[in-house]
Design a protein around this nucleic acid. Structure first.
Length: 466
RNA sequence: GGUGCCAUCGCCAAGUGGUAAGGCCGUAGCCUGCAAAGCUACUAUCCCCAGUUCAAAUCUGGGUGGCACCUCCA
């Protein structure tokens, strides 16, 4: 298994801290709004990673946090006159449902900020005690970046006087403009959390470091976790700050391997809330099967920037369709348990820093071979079983082709339409048997008008939604 | 301004020193009552310039053009 380490900037062979085991931590969503395609991409990438690691006989412990304490949440709660928990519960639930729709499994551990406060307090106290953090007279707690000689080594930034962090966190009580808040005291009372440092709320970076320490870190290893992942934008300042907190409060560095996934852009522009061009997952799921979105978002290498457009999405669907058509041809057969050469190669491709492109090329090749064999020598039972087993392997490893193939091709069609189509198909069948092709073609046109395509096969006639 | 990434067929996209995977689209053919699906065949020398090397899309230098981060952000 090879992983591109985005801090060392090179592909490295993956060697776990503990033999046979992997700890993976990924920065999850802040639950104050609907998930967009970018959240989906990130979740998908690390979902695939866990599958590939597992297929390499590694026992993966995967944690992804839910940030349910945040200024934006508080702001929304005030604006909508709701409880914070109502908002965070709502979006957490929506997130889970949408992730499930694109085939993303739940992580093994899903810590919430609200449930990790004690771990955060502990870490803060350690940092204060060791001189890496300080309290201001306003009651804020800041991380003292000057106290960490390794600060900025992660993102390889150069500290300059024009540091932009100053612009935003302009508290004059900070020792250094680069210092970041671990605890922000709030005086108004209502929407705060109690702590040994007074009422307030934690800084965003703190929760990840604290959760990792609490849920994943082993005391005697050089790194808290094997792999830490997240979106490319998180490298600085988020991961830099996380790394500093962990480094200064424990005896290990944060992660042995860092993985950052590329961005999803729309029409060449970054999708972001401030630009107002977010494409929400829930909207995409109304129009497309979640698995199509999964296939599309995963079809480009995870580190590349991804430019979303519906034409490419349609192309991705066509490719996924081919998997399902083969599945349809072999429907009802049970797989055998042999490991085929195809499966070995597929895993090999994905084990090379998740080279999905090569994997897809292998799949297309397998699909062609199988179809060709089925066209010419349709009776070969062993070959059919082998193909089914290959398809099952693709399902397991990539999550493609997991649905019933007939239902897959009927995505979004209501029962009324389906039965109307069925009626017309019966009539067409009768006309065909009577060799009344004029009538059968007329009926076909009528069926096609429902936005489906029709295919006559030896096993009968099937329709697919276009 | 600082830092970093990228530039491969009409489109999407692998390949990171040994002579360009795959998909979509297109064309031709097989199959089909006709279609659809499936199958077969055909289509690029890798942004530009210079250099290193027996050999470069792949390394180095210089251009040009995109993009990202430096502020909450997947």
């Amino acid at each position: 298994m090879y992983i591109f380490d985005s801090v060392k900037k090179e592909k490295r062979e993956f060697i776990p801290l503990q033999e046979g085991k992997v700890s993976l931590y990924v920065c999850g969503p802040t639950v104050y709004d609907d998930a967009h395609l970018g959240h989906a991409k990130s979740a998908l990438v690390f979902d695939l990673l866990t599958r590939v690691l597992s297929a390499n006989a590694l026992d993966v412990t995967y944690a992804r946090n839910i940030t349910d304490i945040d200024d934006k949440i508080i702001k929304k709660a005030i604006a909508q006159k709701k409880d914070i928990k109502d908002i965070t519960d709502f979006y957490t639930d929506a997130f889970h449902k949408e992730m499930s729709a694109i085939g993303v499994s739940r992580p093994d551990i899903e810590p919430k900020a609200t449930e990790s406060l004690n771990a955060m307090f502990e870490m803060m106290q350690k940092l204060i005690d060791s001189g890496h953090a300080y309290t201001t007279k306003d009651g804020d707690v800041y991380f003292d970046t000057a106290s960490d000689s390794e600060y900025l080594t992660l993102s390889k930034r150069v500290q300059d006087e024009d540091d932009r962090q100053e612009r935003v966190e302009s508290s004059s009580l900070k020792k250094n403009p680069a210092d970041f808040a671990m605890w922000k005291s709030v005086k108004d009372g209502s929407l705060t959390y109690d702590s040994p440092f007074g009422a307030g709320r934690p800084g965003w970076h703190l929760e990840c470091s604290a959760m990792i320490e609490k849920h994943l870190a082993k005391p005697d290893t050089a790194f808290a976790v094997d792999i830490h992942g997240g979106g490319a934008d998180l490298l600085f300042p988020h991961h830099e700050n996380e790394a500093a907190q962990t480094r200064c409060s424990s005896n290990h560095e944060l992660a042995n391997y860092w993985m950052h996934n590329g961005f999803v852009n729309i029409d060449g522009e970054k999708m972001s809330k401030s630009l107002g061009n977010s494409f929400f997952l829930k909207d995409a799921l109304k129009e497309y099967d979640g698995e199509v979105l999964r296939f599309y978002l995963l079809s480009t290498h995870y580190r590349s920037n991804f430019n979303f457009n519906t034409e490419d999405l349609a192309t991705a669907k066509k490719r996924l369709d081919k998997i399902y058509r083969l599945k349809k041809r072999l429907f009802g057969l049970a797989p055998n348990s042999d490991t085929t050469e195809f499966q070995t190669k597929l895993l090999e491709a994905l084990s090379d820093d998740m080279n999905v492109s090569t994997a897809l090329a292998l799949i297309d090749e397998m699909l062609s071979n199988a179809n060709e064999t089925l066209d010419t020598a349709g009776k070969h039972k062993a070959l059919k079983k082998e193909t089914i087993s290959n398809l099952a392997y693709i399902e397991k490893l990539l999550g493609f082709g997991v649905k019933n193939p007939f239902e897959y091709f009927q995505f979004g069609m209501d029962e009324e339409t389906k039965s109307a189509i069925a009626t017309l198909m019966e009539k067409r069948d009768t006309a065909k048997k009577e060799k009344n092709f004029e009538e059968s073609d007329r009926l076909r046109d009528e069926i096609l008008a429902f936005g489906v395509s029709l295919m006559d096969t030896p096993a009968g006639t099937f329709w697919e939604k276009v």
